[in-house]
């Protein structure tokens, strides 16, 4: 079966759904964070797929989407750095990375 746009979109969505399920299922903050990264990358996949399939009039790929993706990766990297720093700070304060134990938003 020839690979179509839908194939890529499906894989992208599937990865996103798995990431989402992971965020909801796992209790370890670090793993949840990994799942968030997975969801971001899954979204990237659909961007690249659209960029390749929606060609410009000249028949070339639409590289605007890939520039966009470049920004996403940069921001994601920054986010990972800050997020992990926060997790470390949280761990220092609470001695845990279990998200069910981190409920100081209550009360």
């Amino acid at each position: 079966m020839e690979v179509t746009l839908n194939h890529f979109l499906f894989v992208s969505g599937l990865l996103f759904a798995i990431g989402l399920a992971g965020v909801l299922v796992r209790r370890n903050v670090i793993v949840i964070f990994m799942c968030l990264e997975l969801m971001l990358s899954a979204a990237n996949l659909s961007l690249v797929a659209f960029s390749r399939y929606n060609v410009t009039p000249g028949g070339d790929a639409d590289y605007n989407a890939q520039v966009f993706l470049f920004f996403i990766i940069t921001v994601a990297a920054a986010e990972v750095a800050v997020g992990l720093a926060i997790i470390v700070a949280l761990y220092r304060a609470k001695q845990t990375t279990d998200i069910t134990q981190i409920n100081s938003m209550k009360n």
Partner: peptide
């Protein structure tokens, strides 16, 4: 609902 549990918030959000 306001459990303070991030995961339940995430669940509702999703």
């Amino acid at each position: 609902l306001q459990s303070g549990n991030l995961q339940s918030y995430g669940f509702l959000f999703a």
